[in-house]
Amino acid sequence: MGGSSAAQTAEGFSLEVSLGPLRLSSPLIGASGCVAFGEEYRRLYENSRQAMEGSSIAQLGAIVTKAVSLKPRGGNPPPRVAETPAGLLNSIGLQNPGLDHFLAELAPRLSQLGTKVIVNLVGDTAQEFAELASILSQKTDFPAFELDLSCPNVEEGGRSFAMSLPSLREVISRVRQVTDRFLIAKLAPNVCDIGEFAQAAVEAGADALTVANTWIGMVVDVERRTSRIGRTTGGVSGPAIRPLTMALVHRVRQAVRVPILASGGAVRTQDVLEYLIVGASAVQIGTGLWIDPMCPLKINRGLREYLARHRMSLGELIGSFQAEVSRGG
């Protein structure tokens, strides 16, 4: 009985959050590569209302598309995924149908998806990133782009854009010159001080930062003495990386003022609360969707209950972390 009245009050608490021009109905965002182009989850959630009332793609305030590159990409050989303790190791290889197919087939359908859409871009060179951003700005009206900077920069010997300050600056400023869309730079976690990279990204023109992509990892099949995936190393995602990425979000919050989209291992309300408290304005959910496909709905419910219980707004919650509070005693 107390529960139902608490839930009613909780309903009154808005989860709306703004990221530049994007007004999101929830701070939860489907992560790039984990929701494809939205269609499968839209259908799954629509078909699942009997099991889970309120099930809808709109429980995600937005989705970020799979990376889109100029030319189609086939990706890496199998196996592409392996489970790790509380995590997932992947080497998909940015498989995607390419810009032409995206424009002709996917973009028109994305406007009907039922939630906001951020387009994730990937290229081999800074020039390719700029070309993509320029064409997408002319031909579509998606309000925001996310740059996947963890991919290798072929002009710098394959080192990722996000791991070299000069190439990070170059790619972001080149893209900034050709588009006025809301620009989100997605940083890589494997750097010495992510604060420096965050500052460089913002100086080069990023409007917001996604912190962070997968962590480089490796799992060995001891019988065959080979990698468990088709490539030697891959990216680790899921709950295993959450405390690591949490510390990065905290560091980036100290370094810059722009909005942060946290990405790493969120699956329960608790996880999202942690990221918001540490200073993220939105939290992307990737691998969590495969640990609990209904987690967006449950987290939104949980967030409202938390706000009701603490009598605070989402805006007040974001960045409310108190580093120096005495632990009592």
């Binding site: 929701v35 989850y41 189609p72 990706g75 050989p77 199998p78 998909i92 498989q95 691998t287 969707l289």
Partner: peptide, 21 residues
């Protein structure tokens, strides 16, 4: 990983696909 077609984790090598999976 996902089993619903979103992650491209299960793409299969075919004889004729030239590594496009």
């Amino acid at each position: 990983a996902c089993a619903i077609g979103v992650c491209n984790g299960c793409n299969l090598p075919l004889r004729s696909d030239g590594g496009r999976y």
